[in-house]
Nucleic acid binder design. Sequence first.
DNA 1: TTTT
DNA 2: TTTT
Lengths: 161, 161, 161, 161
Amino acid sequence: MARGVNKVILVGNLGNDPETKYTQGGMAVTTLSLATTSVRKDREGNTQERTEWHRVKLFGKLGEIAGEYLRKGRQVYIEGSIRYDKFTGQDGVEKYFTDIVADEMQMLGGGGEGGGAGGGGGGRSERPSRPAPRQEAPRKEAPPAKSNDFGSDFADDDIPF
Amino acid sequence: MARGVNKVILVGNLGNDPETKYTQGGMAVTTLSLATTSVRKDREGNTQERTEWHRVKLFGKLGEIAGEYLRKGRQVYIEGSIRYDKFTGQDGVEKYFTDIVADEMQMLGGGGEGGGAGGGGGGRSERPSRPAPRQEAPRKEAPPAKSNDFGSDFADDDIPF
Amino acid sequence: MARGVNKVILVGNLGNDPETKYTQGGMAVTTLSLATTSVRKDREGNTQERTEWHRVKLFGKLGEIAGEYLRKGRQVYIEGSIRYDKFTGQDGVEKYFTDIVADEMQMLGGGGEGGGAGGGGGGRSERPSRPAPRQEAPRKEAPPAKSNDFGSDFADDDIPF
Amino acid sequence: MARGVNKVILVGNLGNDPETKYTQGGMAVTTLSLATTSVRKDREGNTQERTEWHRVKLFGKLGEIAGEYLRKGRQVYIEGSIRYDKFTGQDGVEKYFTDIVADEMQMLGGGGEGGGAGGGGGGRSERPSRPAPRQEAPRKEAPPAKSNDFGSDFADDDIPF
DNA sequence: TTTT
DNA sequence: TTTT
């Protein structure tokens, strides 16, 4: 279902509160600004810090959780993929954007109001009343598949080995 | 939905043909023996190779694809998690097993009959006539969610940014 | 210099204080017991937690840092590889062990006394007076290469693009 | 030595032959154009392919190996980190670039002239006669440290466990 | 813009 | 044995 691997793993701190918008279809789209800092020695032997600011997008349920629980300064684990986009402005100038599209998220450190969350397509959510982020949305459907979710008819004593 | 991250990424070659069994519920469980080799210098400066043999388990649809397309010697990319199990034999001796439970798989190199496959719980498959591995099983249901699958009501022109 | 990829990424909490031993050559070898928890639904729809306990080994400088700064309960990021070992006990019974050999470590969350650390072979350390872990070991040599360390004769204005 | 994690894992095919340049300090800098393709269903249920083209930079010894052995179409595994850069052109327009800076590389598939290579800072290479890429450069020095390289005074029988 |  |  794919040709190749495009995987990103980030651990960093939020430079700002998350920003959540909603598509016309009612899907949450949350954007994070996430800092990761690395250190190297330059040729004079001085320590040089360099910070990358990643623009991380979270869709659907994952976007709702991120918008609700994450805050500026919070440390977070993100797993996802890189997406490069190009837009042409009304001035005719092409603009390039690089996003990390998250498919897994874990809040790190103490003070955590929640655990982790992941997987799942945003599109499974029904349309909310939109400008109001759903806090306690009823779960009518099965939760999104998780990595270790072996499916409903799986049981350990079911395995012939 | 999880506390922590347990992620394994392997690229290696199969030491044997895959072995596929079926649970009582009809779910395929395929086991691979996958070699990864690393090299280091010992203290005499000699190059030392060391090969790890990973026991990789693939469940459900992913197990069916692996059983059907992979063969001894084939190079493969696996993404999954580590699972430690302990069994007590009838002799009372405890035995320990470490498995890599795959949730993504990509056949590498040329001669490839297929691309990649991943995600999805095994439990979604209906029960096959079991001893006979389904080769051409009809796909009545939506394919398992993939990382970049934004869901059915998602469209680029739907996004407000 | 290798054939294949054997990569593990863990985020979890320590179940115990780290244990540090020293080789005859004076290299620190620290062992962590690291928990990662995943959640799935069984076929009755009940939420099932499952915790894996990873045995993580850190060698050399990384082992010293881990032994000094990590404590029971602490959340940590580990990157490394899987190593399977087999020993035959004096009773003639074979015993199997699976270790995660770390080559990168990051302490997570607040209360952090330190940042991250990684890379580097343990063997570069000179022999310490051994039972006493070196706290302020003099650094006579260049620090181990890090991912983003482009080397000593590298400078941005040096690159022709 | 770092704050955060910035890790990228790619498996893809080269869209072009690699391009190698040399810094004034004589370090190789090779650029790859690497394609990864993902598949999703749009809301009409049609299969949509999307290809990301990653610009991958390899420095030093790794850049030399890539320049020498990789060719258009070749499948490759890359591990590295994301780097965002901004340049202001002479027209005063800011331009943004996103690079994947590799610190590990593995040639995949058959026809492979070589195995994998990785780690190590570029700076370890002596200065080549520069405009001429070294094809058969003698290896006077120890190869760069690899993940599983436990260092020169390490031996299995040295470990107290 | 974060964090240490 | 951790953590939420």
